[in-house]
Amino acid sequence: ADFLSNDDYAVYVRENIQVGMMVRCCRAYEEVCEGDVGKVIKLDRDGLHDLNVQCDWQQKGGTYWVRYIHVELIGY
């Protein structure tokens, strides 16, 4: 899907992401590398560009918070 802005994409992720879902990092962020796959373990839905998504990352080996714009949804 094509999104006009980071805000549009962040809204899409916020409306669709669920705890337990698998996500792929589509934009490297601090300790999380692009392409790493993680399981969503906690969500904080306050802002669009806060650290909203806590995942247990496979490559990184452990949990880390990222923003909506850092992840793509790959289902369960």
Rank of each mutant, 00 (worst) to 15 (best):
R14Q: 15
Y12C: 06
G47Q: 10
Y76T: 14
E34C: 03
D2C: 11
V40F: 00
G62P: 00
K39T: 09
F3K: 11
V11L: 15
I17E: 01
W65G: 05
I41K: 02
R14T: 02
I69T: 12
W65Y: 06
V32E: 00
D50V: 04
H70D: 14
T63R: 11
G62W: 00
A10Y: 11
D36W: 09
G62K: 11
R24A: 07
Y29D: 14
G47L: 07
C26G: 07
I41S: 09
A10C: 05
V13M: 08
Y9E: 05
N52L: 06
G75W: 06
N16Y: 05
L48M: 11
L43I: 11
D7M: 08
W65K: 10
H49R: 06
C26F: 08
G61H: 09
W57Q: 00
L48V: 10
V23S: 10
G61R: 09
G47H: 05
D2S: 12
A28G: 13
V11M: 13
R27K: 12
Y76S: 15
V19P: 09
F3N: 14
W65H: 04
C26K: 14
G75C: 08
I41G: 00
D7L: 05
Y76V: 09
C33K: 14
D2G: 13
N6E: 15
D44L: 05
D2R: 12
G61F: 04
W65V: 05
G61T: 10
L51Q: 02
E15W: 03
C26P: 04
Y9L: 05
W57D: 00
E15V: 01
I74G: 14
C26H: 09
C33S: 09
Q58M: 03
Y64K: 10
L48T: 12
M22Q: 15
F3I: 11
C55Y: 07
Q59K: 11
D36R: 02
I74C: 12
Y9G: 07
H49Y: 07
A1P: 05
G47F: 05
L48G: 11
V53F: 07
M21R: 05
R14C: 08
D7Y: 08
C33V: 14
D46R: 12
V11D: 10
D36T: 00
K39L: 08
H49V: 04
V37M: 12
V71I: 14
N6P: 14
D36F: 01
V66R: 00
M22N: 10
I41H: 00
L43N: 03
G75D: 08
V32K: 01
H70A: 05
Y12M: 05
L4Q: 08
C55R: 00
G61D: 07
K39M: 14
D46V: 10
Y64A: 12
G38R: 01
H70S: 08
M22G: 10
R67N: 10
G47K: 03
N16C: 03
Q59D: 14
M22P: 07
I74Q: 15
V66L: 06
D7S: 12
G75T: 12
V19W: 02
V40H: 01
V37H: 03
C33G: 14
N52V: 11
R14E: 13
F3Y: 15
R67V: 07
V53L: 05
I17S: 00
T63E: 09
G47T: 10
Q18M: 13
A1V: 15
G20M: 04
W65D: 01
H49D: 04
D44Q: 14
Y9I: 03
Y76E: 15
Q18L: 05
Y64E: 10
E30R: 10
Y68Q: 02
C25W: 01
Y29M: 02
R27H: 15
Y64F: 09
Y12R: 14
C55W: 03
E34L: 07
Y9H: 14
Y9A: 07
L4S: 13
V37C: 03
D56M: 14
W65T: 10
E31M: 13
N52P: 05
K39Y: 04
V37P: 00
G35Q: 00
D2K: 10
R24Y: 01
R14Y: 06
G61C: 12
N52M: 11
Q59T: 10
I74S: 11
G38A: 02
Y76C: 15
E15T: 11
E15Y: 02
G35H: 07
K42V: 08
E72M: 06
I69C: 06
R24V: 04
D50Y: 03
V23L: 02
M22A: 10
G62D: 10
H70M: 03
K60S: 09
V13C: 04
Y68L: 04
R27F: 06
G35P: 04
V11G: 14
G75S: 12
L48D: 15
E31Y: 07
K60D: 01
G62E: 07
F3W: 06
E72S: 14
D56F: 04
I41P: 03
L43P: 00
I41M: 13
D2P: 10
R45K: 08
S5K: 13
V13D: 05
E15S: 11
E30T: 02
Y64N: 04
C33Q: 15
K39W: 06
N6H: 15
I41L: 13
R14H: 10
D36Y: 09
G20F: 03
H70N: 15
T63W: 06
Y68N: 10
T63Q: 04
R14A: 06
I74H: 13
D7A: 07
G20H: 03
F3D: 11
S5L: 10
V71N: 06
D8V: 05
D2W: 08
I74L: 13
W57M: 05
Q18I: 04
D8C: 10
V32A: 01
N52I: 05
D56N: 10
D46G: 14
L43S: 00
D7G: 11
L73A: 02
Q18D: 09
V19N: 04
R14W: 11
M22S: 11
E30H: 09
I74P: 15
E30N: 08
V11F: 09
D8S: 14
G47R: 06
D44M: 13
H70K: 04
Y9W: 07
R45F: 11
G62Q: 15
L48C: 11
